[in-house]
């Protein structure tokens, strides 16, 4: 067993590459999905029924489809529409499309639970349009969303493991190729699991820090 782990140590650079790809895909994917999700939350909350129906349809569709299925659809389907990506980009596109729906739903949920009074006060003081959203509504959403966005980020980190199936060189893919080379599956996958655990712990520490800030402001 000790020999196994020393073999892994020798392949540490490959694991590290995988880890970096996992982190990059998760972070870039989460940031883009959050930004797009915030935009998508606006039609979700719109009074126009057509806007609401279309955006709600997209969100509910994504919530019914397994992430791997969407990844395949992006990987095999988009080239037919003339959009050709490499594996890495296809994976990122899948993460962003999928999680935009989840982020939008998180934001919509918080938005609809925001105290209507604080928004009404802002309207009475002459706030309207984008300034109302950016100065009064968004800051309150951001402060309330920490734990849920953290959970979603953990979900994204875990979902990146699916991308091994379309040969994106992320952490699980790296682990799988190392174990196949040296036949040491136990040590490699345990190492991978511990690395995922560490990543998720980091996210939780981050959420905890944001919560400390948010607690005073609610």
């Amino acid at each position: 067993m000790i020999r196994d782990f020393s073999l892994i140590w020798q392949s540490a650079d490959r694991l590290l590459d995988g880890l970096i790809n996992t982190v990059l895909l998760s972070l870039v994917g989460a940031v883009l999905a959050l930004a797009l999700g915030a935009l998508l939350a606006i039609p979700l909350m719109a009074s126009n029924p057509v806007l609401r129906l279309v955006s709600r349809g997209f969100v509910d569709l994504m919530r019914c489809v397994p992430f791997l299925m969407l990844t395949y659809l992006v990987y095999y389907g988009l080239p037919r529409l003339g959009l050709r990506f490499d594996n890495w980009t296809a994976g990122l596109v899948a993460i962003v499309v999928y999680n935009t729906a989840y982020m939008a739903e998180i934001i919509r949920g918080i938005w609809s639970r925001l105290e209507r009074e604080t928004i009404e006060a802002a309207v009475a003081f002459g706030f309207h349009g984008w300034r109302l959203v950016s100065r009064i509504i968004l800051p309150q959403i951001v402060l309330a969303a920490g734990p849920m966005i953290g959970n979603q980020l953990i979900q994204i980190i875990k979902d990146t493991a699916f991308l091994t199936i379309i040969a994106v060189p992320e952490l699980t893919h790296a682990a799988n190729s190392i174990q196949a080379q040296y036949f040491i599956p136990f040590a490699t996958f345990i190492t991978a699991v511990l690395l995922y655990w560490a990543l998720c712990m980091l996210v939780e520490v981050g959420v905890y820090a944001v919560e400390r800030i948010a607690e005073k402001r609610r």
Binding site: T160, A175, P185, F189, I190, C200
Partner: peptide, 15 residues
């Protein structure tokens, strides 16, 4: 809770 199902599956099947 922080282990991807794919990774867990590979771990169980191969290890």
């Amino acid at each position: 809770r922080s282990t991807p199902a794919v990774t867990l599956c590979l771990l169980i099947f191969f290890a």
